[in-house]
Amino acid sequence: MYIPEHFEAGPDVIHDLLTRPGAANLVTMTSQGMLATFLPLIYEPSIGEHGALHGHLARTNPQWSEPSIGESLVIIQGADAYISPTWYASKEEHGRVVPTWNYSTAHVYGKLAVHDDAEWLGNHVRGLTGLNEARSERPWSVDDAPERYVSGQLRAIVGIELVISRIEAKAKLSQNRPDKDIIGVVAGLGAQGHQEIASDVARARQDRTHRDAGRA
C-alpha cells in the first residue's frame, strides 16, 4: 500500500480498525487464481505475535478448500467520504484547491488456517454475535435459537483464521491541510451526516497538534 508519511496510521487507528464491528474482504491467491469473499470478522489479540482474525465461510464457498499460496490478505475499510474544496478556507484565499477522498484502511497479511470442528465454530459465532449485538437494547444470543437448528447451521459453515504476520495501515484524514481547512472539513462532513469520519478527522487534527507541540 502506498502510504505517505503524514497519512501513516498510528497504533490507536490500527486497533480501532481491527476491533470495530464490521466486515472485510478476505483475498487469497490459489492455483485457480485470486479468490475474495466479503465476510464479518472478529479480532483475537491473544493469538500469535500480532493477533488473529477469525471468520467463517459457507461450506459451499471454494475459497476455504483451495489451498492459499503464500500470505493471505484481509482488507479492512474504515469510514470514508468525499471532501469538497468548498469546505476549505483556502478556497477563498487563493482558489488552489481540488476535491479529494478521506478514508482509513488496513491491509492485514498472514497465514490462513481452516477450522472445521463444531466447538471452534460454536465459540466463534457466539463471540462474533456478542460483538455485533453489544449495542442492542435486547441483544440476541445464539442460545436463543433451538440447539438442533444451531447445530445444522454450524455444519453449513467452515471457520477461517488469519494469523497476522504484518499490517499496513493508512489514515488519509486531511493531515496535509492547514488547520483552518481541517476545521472546515469537520464541519462539512458533520453537516452531511458523516459523523464517524468527521470524528476521525477531528481526532487526527488533535493528534497532529499534540505531535507539533511535542516538537516545539
Rank of each mutant, 00 (worst) to 15 (best):
I83D: 06
Y82L: 02
S68Q: 14
H54T: 01
E49N: 13
P62F: 06
Q63W: 11
E44S: 02
E49M: 11
A81K: 08
P67F: 03
H50L: 13
Y82N: 04
L53C: 10
P40D: 11
Q63M: 13
E49T: 11
S46I: 07
T37G: 05
P85G: 15
P40K: 08
S72Y: 08
G33V: 03
I75Q: 11
T37M: 05
G70V: 11
R59G: 02
A81Y: 14
S46C: 05
T60N: 15
I42L: 10
I47G: 00
R59P: 10
L35T: 07
T60L: 15
W64R: 04
T86C: 08
L53Y: 05
P85A: 15
Q77H: 15
Q32V: 08
S84N: 14
H56I: 13
Q32Y: 08
S65A: 12
D80P: 11
I47S: 06
I47C: 01
Q77W: 04
A58Y: 06
I42F: 01
A36H: 07
P67M: 03
T60Y: 10
L35C: 12
L53K: 10
G70M: 12
R59C: 11
T86H: 10
G48R: 14
H54R: 08
H54A: 04
E66N: 09
A81F: 12
P40I: 04
G48L: 09
W64D: 02
S68R: 14
H56D: 11
P85Q: 13
H50C: 07
L39C: 03
L53I: 10
P67N: 00
G33H: 02
S65F: 02
D80N: 14
I47Q: 11
P67S: 00
Q77D: 10
P67W: 00
V74M: 10
N61C: 14
I42M: 02
F38Y: 14
D80Q: 14
S46K: 15
A36F: 10
S46W: 06
A58H: 07
S84Y: 07
M34F: 06
E66T: 06
Q32A: 15
Q63I: 07
S65L: 02
H56A: 10
D80M: 11
L41C: 05
Q32H: 08
S65K: 08
Y82T: 12
A79T: 01
A58T: 08
G48A: 03
P40F: 04
E44G: 00
T37H: 10
D80R: 09
I47W: 01
L57C: 07
H56L: 14
F38C: 10
A81P: 07
E66P: 01
A58V: 06
P62Q: 05
E44H: 03
P40L: 05
A81M: 11
A79W: 01
E66G: 03
A58K: 01
F38P: 13
I42Q: 04
G78M: 00
I69T: 13
I76V: 14
I69F: 02
G78C: 04
W64E: 00
F38H: 15
G51E: 02
A52P: 04
Y43H: 09
E49L: 13
L73D: 05
A58F: 12
L53M: 12
L39I: 13
P45A: 08
I47A: 03
E71V: 00
G55C: 03
H50D: 00
E44W: 04
S68E: 07
E49A: 15
H56Q: 14
T86G: 09
